[in-house]
Design a protein around this nucleic acid. Structure first.
Lengths: 167, 167
DNA sequence: TCACCATCTCACATTGCTGTAACTACGAAT
DNA sequence: ATTCGTAGTTACAGCAATGTGAGATGGTGA
């Protein structure tokens, strides 16, 4: 493909965006899940790549950094023994109630309901938990871990391709 | 069965029911699960009736009150979206670390580990939860609910058999 | 054009049940 | 004592959810 003068900027932006994101394989590696799992989650609408979705065989998915954070959170919940069905509910909620500063919050799951709390209200919520299971999840911890994982994978990729031109 | 002067029939029946425990069908009704589910859990060793286990077709399972408490707890965990596999782990732990006063405690599940905490340590445990999901569960709430359910079912059973011969 | 590799499709496995049709023990009736 | 009904257990088949692996398909860049 040749760069033509007058090419719409959006094409360039799109290319840039795609180069900035993470492929399916990279994403799976960073998050610590199998590619098949990532594929399954995308096809069943749990989480789709926000930069570019697949559109037929041969196309490429591109995951954003935020996608990685969500994926890591999903994995943590699964590791803790939560059913995927419940995880879907939690993310349905989270996507409707977008918090700007999710990393500083605690996620509180109480039966069917989900809340994002800071330390103060946390205790109250727990004290009221008569006969229900309260699940508390610190998002900042997940973000820290993700940062480390991304760095690991990034350096691996650079090591594997030392010939790549950096302009 | 002999009627003793001065003792209300319901008391005798209740005592008898408690001494003999609860049948599979009764247990399922009290706990709020299907009989098939209860059967599955017994056959797969999640929880077996402690008074008398099944031993071939036609035999009878007999569940104790403590069994009911455990079953109710299991149901609560499942309702909260916990995988049965994780529930098995939690109960493996609980059966090894029997607490005399389980009803006044909180159950704290953190990844693979399980703890029984009271309010004081609870907060500390949660504050340390960097990137892991903490699940907190009040056992006293479950016990209260169970008591009500048992009373309901007991009266239902008595109502259904008003024709029972006495003497 | 060709190689590469991500995506897609299909088949199969496991878990956690559910439904149904035997099967059997126990108590009551005969 | 024998028969009989009922309630509970068992065996077996099947279902949905959640994947996994192998191989076909098809963009993309050199």
């Amino acid at each position: 493909m040749t760069r033509i003068a007058g090419t719409p900027l959006s094409d360039i932006d799109k290319k840039l965006a795609e180069s900035l994101g993470y492929s399916g394989t990279q994403t799976a590696a960073v998050v610590g899940i199998t590619y098949r799992q990532l594929d399954y989650w995308a096809r069943t609408d749990l989480i789709r790549p926000s930069l570019s979705d697949a559109s037929g065989s041969g196309s490429r998915r591109r995951y954003s950094y935020t996608d990685l954070l969500e994926l890591k959170t999903i994995k943590k919940l699964l590791d803790a023994g939560i059913k995927l069905e419940q995880v879907r509910k939690v993310f349905d909620y989270l996507r409707e109630h977008v918090t700007t500063d999710i990393a500083s919050a605690h996620l509180v799951i109480e039966g069917e309901s989900v809340q994002v709390c800071d330390d103060g209200e946390l205790i109250d919520v727990l004290k009221n938990g008569q006969g229900v299971l309260n699940m508390v999840f610190s998002m900042s911890g997940v973000k820290n871990e993700l940062e480390a994982d991304v760095a690991d994978i990034a350096s691996e990729i650079l090591d594997e391709q030392p010939h790549r031109r950096i302009g």
